[in-house]
Design a protein around this nucleic acid. Structure first.
Lengths: 208, 208
DNA sequence: ACGCCACCTGTCCGCGTGGACAATACCCAT
DNA sequence: ATGGGTATTGTCCACGCGGACAGGTGGCGT
């Protein structure tokens, strides 16, 4: 095992920076894209960068400082609202990985391990799309669908809950009692290992 | 950290099997594709499979035993001579990863970690090719950012609320009172024209 | 100085939610 | 027949949430 390369955290979001400190790897905080120059000339490679700056004029990866450092660094780009097109763009701009800004720490650590090892890291949503684009007659990749362990009825309830319907609204829509909706949701929460309907919504809509 | 899921090693190459034993994870050796059935019904998920069987009639991923188990398992497929087309085929057949049979142990371990975590793993060669194939000049419209009308503080609160944090958790994270969080959220709801934090989450994450 | 705005805090209250106890009925496999 | 899974409904209760009243501070521009 290599002794964990140091990590440059690049964001102007103080809160996010603090959150990312928990990743370990002797993190160093930076705010300006130009800090990539000093990081690279110091012999380091690993960078975690926030793609959503407060004062955004143009995409980060179009800046000169990014362009001249991208190939020499191992950059993991994070977005608050990951989006396939943005992911493609930033990967094409030389990033080694693309993920959610608030991805679980374990996921971020894994992604950093991967790109530190010289590989590329792409989340399953974007990767699935890439595969689908290349092979259009794709019968659906092996990623487990959120509704896999659910029964038919549970799926219906979960679907409605995930778009914000209240228990009563779901009950009316399905012609059952609110109590029954709660029973189904309880089962859904347990099977999908989520705490509440908001986490369910995030799961259903492919966030994290 | 999860306590390393057990691993099923599927190959009829004794030498290779011995080599893969070094990966750890309480490896279990299997020779026949049908052993995937018992592995899955035993509640396990992780599999490392050799795509180059001694007596090859048809690609492994076209066998019935593969097809009926692929979605339920996390399969890392390995080939002695990795090739982009084979990689695409096997990934489309439900594998969660594709790599070289004799990849370094650290690489294999990393790949297993990744797919055990629910992600997909693709080597940089294949991934680069995928990116190149879809490198259509991305339209990338500057869609109105959800946080446009929000103040700095409101943005922070909204971001945390949108990933499921409770008011109290947000308050602790920002070093303010729960009451203040509610005040900010009230303003956020009004500015973004949403009823509650679930709708906020959907908006923030680009759903609808 | 005055108004505006961002930021912060307090109390009260109604309601939706989710969990913990239940129970009944149907279908299907051993 | 007995057991298991699915679907349904009931009551009770603690908790978080969001709204509605209220208030205080500091900065910034006219």
């Amino acid at each position: 095992m290599s002794p964990a390369e140091p990590l440059l955290i690049l964001t102007d979001d103080d809160l996010l920076a603090e959150h990312w400190q928990a990743l370990g790897r002797s993190p160093v905080r930076a705010r300006r894209l130009e800090d990539l120059d000093t990081w690279r000339s110091a012999g380091h490679r690993l960078v975690l960068v926030d793609l959503d700056p407060r004062r955004a004029d143009a995409p980060l990866w179009q800046h000169a400082a990014w362009q001249r450092n991208a190939t020499g660094l191992a950059i993991l780009a994070a977005s608050a609202q990951p989006n396939d097109d943005e992911g493609l763009a930033v990967l094409n701009a030389g990033a080694c990985g693309y993920c959610h800004t608030h991805a679980p720490t374990t996921t971020l650590r894994r992604a950093l391990d991967v790109i530190a090892g010289g590989e590329l890291w792409v989340g399953r949503a974007l990767l699935s799309r890439l595969l689908r684009l290349v092979d259009t007659r794709l019968p659906r990749v092996g990623l487990a669908h959120w509704s896999a362990p659910l029964t038919e009825r549970e799926r219906e309830v979960a679907q409605l809950a995930a778009v914000g319907d209240s228990n009563l609204a779901i009950a009316d829509a399905l012609g059952i009692t609110e109590r029954t909706v709660k029973a189904h949701l309880k089962a859904v929460f347990e099977k999908l290992q989520v705490a509440d309907r908001l986490q369910l919504a995030l799961r259903v809509h492919g966030v994290r």
